[in-house]
Nucleic acid binder design. Structure first.
Lengths: 196, 196
DNA sequence: AGTACTATTGAACGATTGTTCAAGATCAAA
DNA sequence: TTTGATCTTGAACAATCGTTCAATAGTACT
């Protein structure tokens, strides 16, 4: 085993994140990973299998980051920092501004069953992580407990998706900073009255 | 000319919207459009050329819809209706909830120069349409003129992107309705103080 | 009706796709 | 050092990719 799975998956993540699942060919992976086809297939079973590992590793990392935000003594500030570091990336790798899961969502019709399952499970995992962040925001009295934390978490996730995609287009970092602050304002702002 | 360009592009739009640019093969297009390869290439020059027409038609339609919102006597209500009809689509074609331009953005590395240019021009066109919507919202006193309309437009576009992607995942229409209302509340809400 | 031009057809092309597999290399245990 | 198991190699596979082009059909104008 020449390279450990960790470094292989990290290299593969870079490719898939930049180009998407379909656009990355096996030959491209072979040169990027410095591995021959049989070797890749023996370790990961298929291109799809390797992609699943990539998604899993990505979800794990992001879940860790979100839980770290939740466990921070000042969740609101930690959330701002998390947004800033995620949304304002170096100019030579702006593709990382887009969430890999959301990017993959655009290709969901082309994925095999394994990847599709891994993707939806990853979504659920991160959704729960967002819920925990919101619960800590409420517990630390950073925001009022007027709404269910699950609802706020969905909204926050929605904001995050929008911001990460928008940050991909804009390249105006100052505008992104403003949008982040607006999100933090709205997080503490009013919610629509629910009429049932 | 057996089919008019309009119906051909409409059929092609359906395919590209559902599966993405790369995932749609020429054979698939041939059967869906009921056209032979030479015929497609004679009319559209290439798969990329056809895709450009698809993007253009999509942008034109959405620009029209947005300007219709702007010209409405009650822009705020028209905006709500626009969001509702765009975000809550029949269950058998939920892929239409995602903006085709945003979906295409995930494949931007795989696009030819023509498509890339068409895409970025389309983004700019719709951005300007959003600016006009916001200007009318201000003119009709639906929202206060505390901020530059261009900034508000970016925020609104960001919300729209987030909502359309989120609506792709959720399948809980009631939650989407709530998120739309929250957006309309925040649209009239406070903005962060800009410290320069 | 005949000419000139455009549109359509469908077989075929070279390139690339993901994947396989027999052969060789590597390593741990006996 | 030999055995057995695991991992790596790289040529080769069938399938599919976007695209071409000579032949045919269709259309418009004189």
């Amino acid at each position: 085993m020449r390279y450990t799975d960790d470094v292989v998956i990290e290299k593969a993540t870079g490719l898939f994140w930049q180009k998407g699942y379909l656009a990355v060919g096996m030959r491209e992976l072979q040169t990027a990973l410095d591995m021959r086809p049989g070797s890749i297939y023996n370790r990961f079973k298929s291109k799809d299998g390797l992609f699943c590992k990539v998604i899993c590793a990505y979800v794990e990392q992001n879940e860790k980051d979100l839980l770290h935000v939740a466990q921070s003594p000042s969740p609101l500030d930690a959330l701002r920092d998390y947004f800033l570091t995620t949304l304002i990336t170096p100019a030579n790798q702006t593709h990382q501004r887009q969430c890999l899961l959301i990017k993959t969502l655009a290709e969901i019709d082309s994925l095999h069953d394994d990847s599709r399952l891994t993707l939806s499970q990853g979504m659920e995992t991160l959704n729960q992580a967002f819920v925990k962040v919101v619960e800590q925001l409420i517990a630390s009295h950073s925001i009022a407990k007027d709404e269910e934390s699950e609802k706020i978490a969905s909204w926050l996730q929605c904001q995050f998706i929008g911001l990460r995609t928008f940050a991909l287009i804009t390249h105006d970092d100052e505008k992104i900073r403003t949008l982040i602050e607006k999100t933090l304002v709205d997080l503490q702002g009013n919610w629509p009255v629910t009429t049932h």
